[in-house]
Design a binder for these strands. Sequence first.
DNA 1: GCGAAGGTGTAATAGGCATTACACCTGTAG
DNA 2: CTACAGGTGTAATGCCTATTACACCTTCGC
Lengths: 205, 205
Amino acid sequence: MIETATETDRLDRRRQSIVESARALFVEQGFERTTLGHIVDRAGGSLATVYKLFGNKEGLLDAVVFDQAGSGESLIREVASEGAPPAETLRRIAAKLHQRLLDPGEVALVRIVIARSIEDPTFARRFFETTAMCTRQALQRIFGAWSEAGVAMEGDPEMLAEIFLGLIISDLQTEAISHGVAGKPSQERLALRTEFFLKGSGLLE
Amino acid sequence: MIETATETDRLDRRRQSIVESARALFVEQGFERTTLGHIVDRAGGSLATVYKLFGNKEGLLDAVVFDQAGSGESLIREVASEGAPPAETLRRIAAKLHQRLLDPGEVALVRIVIARSIEDPTFARRFFETTAMCTRQALQRIFGAWSEAGVAMEGDPEMLAEIFLGLIISDLQTEAISHGVAGKPSQERLALRTEFFLKGSGLLE
DNA sequence: GCGAAGGTGTAATAGGCATTACACCTGTAG
DNA sequence: CTACAGGTGTAATGCCTATTACACCTTCGC
């Protein structure tokens, strides 16, 4: 049978719906405690559909994580292409990256990946490579480009990228484990830290 | 019956043995996939003993995590009491704290806590309060003391403590999720970052 | 030795869940 | 209209594991 457009659509919507329900439940209860039954109850459709679309529970987790996960690479590219001076560019990147990574959904996703990583390290490595590693390399390229363009800065691009990303990642880690106890990682405190970085790297105009 | 010393010892050793086996297995396979049966097989003793000592599986997790978890507070106190100048003191603290937090056992523990935190946020908050929060406060006190003693520094103690700890925490987060892919977080790279911090904070002698 | 108190090992209990098997329904082509 | 092909819902299947119940044994005071 040749698939018609409407059928493809329906399957697509089913897929979407299942992934969304699964994500919500994984985020609430974790992977192991979430049963396929509950996911199906919430999403509509049926178990058979889940197995047809994702193979098994792990396949569904894969879809949940990698449908959403994105690196900050494009975000960095966009801001960089605005052509602002280095200091301002970095301020914008910090703010946007922070906002994206500290989004509750994103934090929850990171928790799930770390949890899963205990029994399946490969899974977490894959996640890391498609997110943090890409982001860091994009940052490193920016520092490198500035350096070659004659912008004065203290420290090599690799270290600067590491420190700069660390300013944001440390908030993510704190939030992942403290569930809000540490106080909201606010934009103002991030801004303070960003200025600290700018001064230290000699990039402050 | 009045407990004799040898009996207390035996129970203590049993407890120790069970906690150690549980930790090893939790670290390898995660909390949910580890069965009490396997723990007992490995530790010796029996299920009944586990239930007597820990109540249930969660109680055992609690013992595993909080027996080991310690804040960096005492470490910081010790180094501070050596009376070295601020820059040198911070170098020593960074090195020792990094070594402790990046120890594979400690990283694995953090993974377990984060995993568990999905269904029991309170648990993770408790962990956070007895570890990271204490450490940060200890750092903050040091910066505050220096500041009051007339040492010149740029930025308030709270922010400095946040950034300084972030230098180390970001490595922990990276290691927790990347399982080594990011390359060994080496002492040399930490040293570079520490110098960056010292320059930026104006604490370099 | 001896009796008891409590630790120890083993064998149920009981429920849960991923996965599979199967029957039904719906929409389509001829 | 009819037969069918594949999606869909439901009811097993089969295994696993936290927890409990119970019988045995070790140890210690006397």
